[in-house]
């Protein structure tokens, strides 16, 4: 059993919220995840040196077509996770990278599909388009760790209010008076 610490979950929530606010889609995360899984499979079969494994990991992360700030945040979290795995003597360390990306993907779903969508719904916004996308980013930026995520899950209208929305009235700035 690989025990996942609270710190790691908090870090994953923070990275996921950065990815959402920087407009990274779930399918882009899925692409990174599948490339890392292929690398892990090769490393597990014993075909890669640790150095080569690291090089290929860097290559995958550089090649990912995502915003730079999102990339930095993602790479930092994954590197930290790989470093911890390495200090525990786990091999291949890239398995810690796939685990971290999976955790981030869970957080992404929880933030985007559950919490933000419901917060928008409480404000009467039923779909995300060019006009409402900045709101999603603003909401995501507020979610910095698991306890905040849970707080907003329990009370989605609070997230809507704190992001400048009023119940059933849509964005305050663009409302027609």
């Amino acid at each position: 059993m690989s025990v996942i610490s609270r710190d790691k979950v908090d870090k994953a929530v923070k990275v996921a919220s950065t990815l959402i606010s920087r407009g990274v889609s779930m399918s882009q995360i899925g692409n990174i995840q599948s490339m890392l899984m292929r690398l892990e499979a090769r490393a597990r079969m014993g075909g890669l040196h640790a150095e080569r494994e690291q090089e290929e990991f860097e290559c995958i992360m550089r090649a990912a077509a995502i915003d730079d700030r999102a990339r930095r945040s993602l790479v930092e979290a994954i590197r930290e996770s790989m470093k911890e795995a390495s200090s525990r003597g786990e091999s291949p360390t890239v398995s810690a990278a796939t685990e971290m990306v999976s955790l981030i993907a869970w957080c992404y779903d929880a933030i985007n599909d559950t919490v933000i969508k419901e917060a928008l719904r409480t404000a009467g916004i039923m779909r995300i388009d060019r006009r409402t996308r900045p709101l999603v980013g603003r909401m995501a930026d507020r979610i910095e760790d698991l306890s905040i995520l849970i707080k907003y899950f329990m009370n989605p209208s609070l997230l809507a209010r704190e992001s400048g929305l009023r119940p059933k009235q849509g964005p305050i700035r663009s409302r027609r008076w």
Binding site: S2, I4, R6, V9, D109, T114, K117, I150
Partner: peptide
């Protein structure tokens, strides 16, 4: 699998978005 109640909370919230668990049920469990 993860030995973490935090992961359970995260999982339950994620499942709400996927339509597998109702919001009320997830809130009560959390």
């Amino acid at each position: 699998q993860y030995g973490s109640v935090d992961m359970v909370k995260l999982y339950v919230i994620r499942q709400v978005g996927r339509g597998k668990i109702s919001r009320e049920a997830a809130k009560t469990l959390i």
